[in-house]
Design a protein around this nucleic acid. Structure first.
Lengths: 215, 215
DNA sequence: ACTATTATTTACCAAAAGGTAAAAATATAA
DNA sequence: TTATATTTTTACCTTTTGGTAAATAATAGT
């Protein structure tokens, strides 16, 4: 008997496709309504299946919510490793970091919003994760920045608040996009807008840490 | 007959007190659960009255929500007028602006969070307000910054993105406070933390616009 | 003291929503 | 082709919740 799980049967392929379609739909609904405001009915509707069928794939709302959160966290972990490019100069590392973070806001606005809702609500689901995963990485990254300062590579700046600022300044392009659209008089932020934003934020941070301007 | 509305009878005093107690409770619940997740029952419970009694004061949830939003917007309008201190230097104006915005995050974290939930959710209630009130003020403020640049008072910087960054960097101390608490290893952010954050953000922005450091 | 107004409680309801159970339909393995 | 496993649909149930209606209590005005 061939392995049930690994064989790419018609069913297993469809299942994978459908699951990711559901996750995308869920992301959209959670982003725009928050956990409580998101209904399984609405998520199912977006995914073009029945509510009962949705429940067949994700037995309950909590589980679905956690899966959506996990997806965006996985992306962050994968792309936002501050220490991977230690050989680069501080400017390059930071510029790259800002670029990656901004890319995520661009490519995964809904996941970012779900995360934002969760944190603003007091991180009822993610608090443990923040403690066990994010904090250790944060502490390491802070140490690296301190090292840069001690070596005189960048200006004296509080590393912790530097990170908070970078996160806020990049995350805002996902979370507060509606406000920006209104203020910029556009119905949607364009690639151009994101490119300019990326430059503006990078520039601002690089200037602030006293590193040379890049370009 | 003396004016019913203006006389400070026992009832009218209690009413005012109770209404503000309700609004504070509502703010807390909307902040931590979002609009849909907030129940009238829970708000009433926090305000120590019955649900029916709550409904007597605020006939429906939408209205209550709008009142909570209005409160925080009024505070912002009152405190965040960029043009009021035109006689000051750019550094002073911006430093003052950052300080005020940070104060609001400090003093009204729940209102700030309610606003954040609303915007992240696509501003279903506030969109019109943003267009009619915020945009005009934004446009004026942007013009002032452009003037500064043209006069050579500050470095060339994109004014729009400068504002987005300031807002994000200050707002984050209200919205993402839980994340910071975890990362800083504290159960609550202290006055000291906010003071340091204020300095860090001010410093960062002031450096970035190429103005002299203030202290 | 009596009346009118305001505040609070009690009783109730309809809609929404998460979820269970089981039948029916479809696909896969032999 | 037939038995088995997977997927989808149908029917239904319970809890939560925003809200209505009306009775009761408390306060204010005369």
């Amino acid at each position: 008997m061939t392995d049930k799980k690994l064989r790419k049967t018609k069913q297993s392929v469809n299942r994978a496709l459908l699951e990711s379609r559901i996750l995308r739909s869920a992301e959209i609904v959670f982003a725009s309504k928050g956990f409580s405001g998101a209904s399984m009915e609405r998520i199912a509707e977006l995914a073009k299946i029945s509510k009962q069928n949705l429940i067949y794939y994700f037995p309950n709302k909590d589980l679905l919510y956690k899966r959506v959160l996990k997806e965006i966290l996985d992306i962050w972990i994968e792309k936002l490793s501050f220490l991977e490019h230690q050989e680069d100069s501080p400017e390059e590392v930071i510029a790259n970091y800002v670029r990656e973070k901004m890319q995520i806001s661009r490519l995964y606005p809904n996941g970012s919003k779900v995360f934002a809702h969760e944190i603003i609500s007091g991180a009822p689901v993610l608090k443990e994760y923040l403690i066990s995963h994010l904090k250790p990485q944060f502490d390491r990254d802070v140490e690296l920045v301190k090292l840069w300062i001690n070596k005189g590579l960048i200006e004296e700046i509080d590393p912790q608040y530097l990170f908070f600022t970078i996160w806020a300044a990049t995350q805002t392009y996902a979370d507060f996009s509606v406000q920006m659209e209104v203020l910029l008089g556009k119905s949607q932020l364009s690639d151009e807008d994101f490119k300019r934003a990326e430059l503006a934020v990078t520039d601002l941070v690089v200037r602030a840490i006293g590193a040379k301007k890049i370009i």
